[in-house]
Design a protein around this nucleic acid. Structure first.
Length: 547
RNA sequence: GCGCCGGUAGCUCAGCUGGAUAGAGCAACAGCCUUCUAAGCUGUGGGUCAAAGGUUCGAGUCCUUUUCGGCGUGCCA
C-alpha cells in the first residue's frame, strides 16, 4: 500500500506545527474496517512530548495536512487520537491495471537483487529414515527457499551430513548384530545406544543378500563394507522420500570434506591465533566464557577427535567463504543448545553473524482419531515421513507441516489429513482455484474477453473491493513471511484470500452479466487465479484446474 | 538446578514494530442449490488471553514472580 505518500504528507504537517525533529511515524492496518484502510497513532505518541492532548494534536495535524483527494477519500480522528485514512475505491481499482500487466509473475519481486542466500535444511545423517520432525524441517526449509526465490534472491538449497563418527559406528554395530542374527544361533542384542528401528533388519537382510556370510567376522574391512552399505541404503531412502515430497536440494555437503580439505585444521589455527582456545586435560577447549557465554566447551577431545562444534564452526565459516551473503539454517528444537556456541566462535573469527539466521522449529506430534500416536525409538516402531507421504500425498503433508508457526508444537492430525473433505484446509484453496478455471471455461471466448482492456472502476461493491485489497497485499505478505522466516504467514494469507474470493463468487455473478461488468469481473477473477496459483506454488502445491 | 519454546473459544491454532469491540478453521445450531463447482456461502452461540503484580494514555503482546507442558543442559550429533 501507498503509505509513503501519507507519511510525507504527515511529515510536512508536523513540521508546519513546529516540530523540529520529525519522529518515526508508525502505521497499522486497523482490523475494524470502520477505522479506514490505514491508521497512525502519531498524535498519541506525541502527546507526552508536546504536553497536549492527543485529540488536540491530531486536530492540528489535520488542519495542516495536504493530500491528494483522488487517492484519499477521508481522513478522520477517532478514538483516543488515532488518525484514520480511508482510500478512495478508485485507488484500489487503479492498482489492478498494474497487477493485470504483471499477469503470471505477480508476486515476484526483485528486492533480493541477486543476493546469494544459502538455506540449509533436512540435514539428517544417513543413519536411518526420515521421521515427521524431519518432514517439518524439510517443509519449512523448502518453503523459505521458495519465498526468497520469489523475492529475487539467488538461493542455494543445501543438505549437510556427517557420514563418519560415533553415529555411523552405532549404525554399523546395529546392522552387524541384525546381520549375525540372520544365520547365527546366538541371538546377540543391539547395544543400548544403537539403532533399534525395524529398518535395520531390512538393511541386514539386503546386506545378507548381497554378501552372504562373508562379513561375519566383523573385522575392519567388513565394517567398512557394512558402513558403506548402510550409508547408501539410508541415503537412498532419504532421497527418495525427499523426491516424493517434491524437494530437490542443490548441494549435499559432506562434513568429511571439511577434514579432507584441511578446513578443520584451518579453523583450529584461526581459533588459536585469535587466542580463543586452550589446552586442558589433554583436550582443546573453546573459551566461550570470554565470549559472553556461561561455560567453556571442548572442541577437540583428548582422543584427538573433534566434537560436533568444531566442524559446525568450520562449516559456517565455509559458507561465508563460498560467497553467501545470507545464511539460513533450519534446525529442530533439539539443536538449540549448540547454536550460541557456534555463533560466538564464528563471530569472534571475524564473520558477521547478523547474516546468519537460525530458524528453530518445535516438534511434531501425530494424532489419529484423537489419540496421540507414540513414536518410540526404543521399540523401533515408528511412523516415518515416507509412510505419511504414501498415505496422504506430498501436498497435504507440506501444507499441514507449515500451517503452524515455527515456534509452536505442531499436532499432525492424521484423521483430518486423510479426509478428502471440506474439513481439510488445503482443499479449500485448491477448490477456489478450480472454481475460477471453471468460470473461465463457462464464459464464451473468455480468452478474447481477457485480451481486452477492462474498466476496473466498475468494481465498487464491498465484495469486489475486499478481494482487490487482498490482491494488492499479496507481495507484502511474501515479504513479511521472508522477514519473519514464517511460511505460515503465506498460509494464513491464502486462507483469507480464498475466503474473500468465495464471498465474491457467491455475490457477484460473471456469466450472463452485462458486457462491461462481465469483462471487469472476469479480469478480476483471473487475477485472483494468478494469486492463488502463485501463492500455492510458493508452498510447493499445485493449483488444479478441476476438482 | 539452569537455559530455550509454548499455555488464547469444546478441539487445532492466528493475533505483524504495544493500539480502538481478541480472530479463523473444525465441532454445535439456523438458513441458502431450475443460475459460472454446495469440497461453497450467510447468520447465531461460544473467552477471567495459565495466575498474580508492574511499566503507560493503552498490555494477549513489554518486565518480574509463580505454575503447567515440551525440548535441551556431554570430551554424543
Amino acid at each position: 500500500m501507498k503509505i509513503k505518500i501519507i507519511e510525507n504528507a504527515l511529515s510536512n504537517a508536523l513540521s508546519k506545527i513546529g516540530l523540529e525533529e520529525i519522529p518515526q511515524i508508525a502505521f497499522e492496518k486497523p482490523n475494524n474496517p470502520d477505522h479506514g484502510d490505514i491508521s497512525t497513532n502519531i498524535a498519541l505518541q506525541l502527546a507526552s512530548i508536546l504536553k497536549n492532548s492527543p485529540t488536540k494534536i491530531a486536530e492540528s495535524i489535520l488542519q495542516n495536512l495536504e493530500y491528494d483527494e483522488s487517492l484519499i477519500e477521508k481522513v478522520e480522528i477517532a478514538g483516543p487520537g488515532f488518525i484514520n485514512f480511508k482510500f478512495n475505491t478508485n485507488y484500489f481499482t487503479s492498482q489492478l491495471e498494474y497487477i493485470r500487466s504483471k499477469n503470471e509473475i505477480y508476486g515476484q519481486q526483485d528486492i533480493g537483487n541477486g543476493i546469494r542466500v544459502n538455506v540449509e535444511y533436512v540435514s539428517a545423517n544417513p543413519t536411518g529414515l526420515l521421521h515427521l520432525g524431519h518432514g517439518r524441517n524439510a517443509a519449512i526449509g523448502d518453503t523459505i527457499a521458495n519465498i526468497y526465490e520469489w523475492l529475487g534472491y539467488d538461493v542455494t538449497r543445501e543438505y549437510y551430513f556427517n557420514n563418519a563418527g560415533n553415529q555411523m559406528n552405532n549404525l554399523v554395530n546395529s546392522i552387524y548384530v541384525r546381520y549375525l542374527n540372520l544365520f547365527n544361533d546366538t541371538q546377540q542384542q543391539i547395544p543400548e545406544d544403537g539403532y533399534h528401528g525395524e529398518y535395520v533388519v531390512e538393511i541386514a537382510n539386503d546386506l545378507y543378500n548381497e554378501y552372504g556370510e562373508e562379513l561375519k567376522d566383523g573385522n575392519y574391512q567388513d565394517r567398512i563394507a557394512i558402513k558403506k552399505f548402510g550409508e547408501s541404503w539410508c541415503f537412498d531412502k532419504i532421497k527418495k522420500t525427499l523426491t516424493k515430497m517434491n524437494i530437490e536440494q542443490d548441494v549435499f555437503y559432506n562434513e568429511d570434506s571439511l577434514y579432507k580439505e584441511g578446513k578443520i585444521s584451518d579453523v583450529i589455527n584461526d581459533l588459536k591465533e585469535a587466542n580463543l582456545v586452550y589446552e586442558k586435560d589433554g583436550a582443546t577447549w573453546l573459551k566461550l566464557s570470554e565470549m559472553g557465554l556461561e561455560d567453556d566447551r571442548v572442541i577437540v577431545k583428548s582422543s584427538g577427535e573433534p566434537t560436533y562444534r568444531l566442524p559446525d564452526i568450520a562449516y559456517h565459516k565455509e559458507k561465508f567463504k563460498r560467497g553467501f551473503d545470507k545464511i539460513i539454517d533450519v534446525f529442530g528444537a533439539d539443536h538449540i543448545a549448540t547454536i550460541p556456541d557456534v555463533m560466538a566462535a564464528v563471530k569472534h573469527l571475524g564473520y558477521n553473524t547478523e547474516n546468519i539466521k537460525v530458524v528453530i522449529h518445535q516438534f511434531v506430534t501425530l494424532t489419529k482419531d484423537g489419540q496421540q500416536v507414540k513414536m518410540s525409538k526404543r521399540t523401533g516402531k515408528s511412523y516415518t515421513l515416507d509412510d505419511l507421504l504414501d498415505e496422504v500425498g506430498s501436498e497435504v503433508v507440506r501444507f499441514f507441516l507449515i500451517m503452524r508457526g515455527n515456534t509452536t508444537h505442531l499436532e499432525f492430525d492424521l484423521t483430518l489429513a486423510t479426509e478428502n473433505s471440506d474439513k481439510n484446509p488445503v482443499f479449500y484453496l485448491k477448490y477456489a482455484h478450480a472454481r475460477i478455471c471453471s468460470i473461465l471455461e463457462n464464459i464464451e471466448n473468455s480468452d478474447l474477453v481477457l485480451s481486452e482492456v477492462p474498466d476496473f472502476s466498475l468494481l465498487q461493491s464491498e465484495e469486489e473491493i475486499n478481494l482487490i485489497k487482498s490482491i494488492i497485499e499479496f507481495p507484502d505478505y511474501i515479504k513479511l513471511a521472508a522477514n519473519k522466516y514464517e511460511p505460515q504467514i503465506i498460509v494464513e494469507y491464502l486462507r483469507e484470500f480464498a475466503s474473500r474470493f468465495s464471498t465474491f463468487y457467491h455475490s457477484c455473478r460473471i456469466k450472463g452479466e452485462e458486457e462491461q461488468i462481465l469483462r471487469s469481473r472476469l479480469h478480476l477473477a483471473n487475477i485472483a487465479k494468478v494469486v492463488l496459483k502463485n501463492g500455492l506454488s510458493i508452498l510447493g502445491i499445485k493449483a488444479p484446474n478441476k476438482m
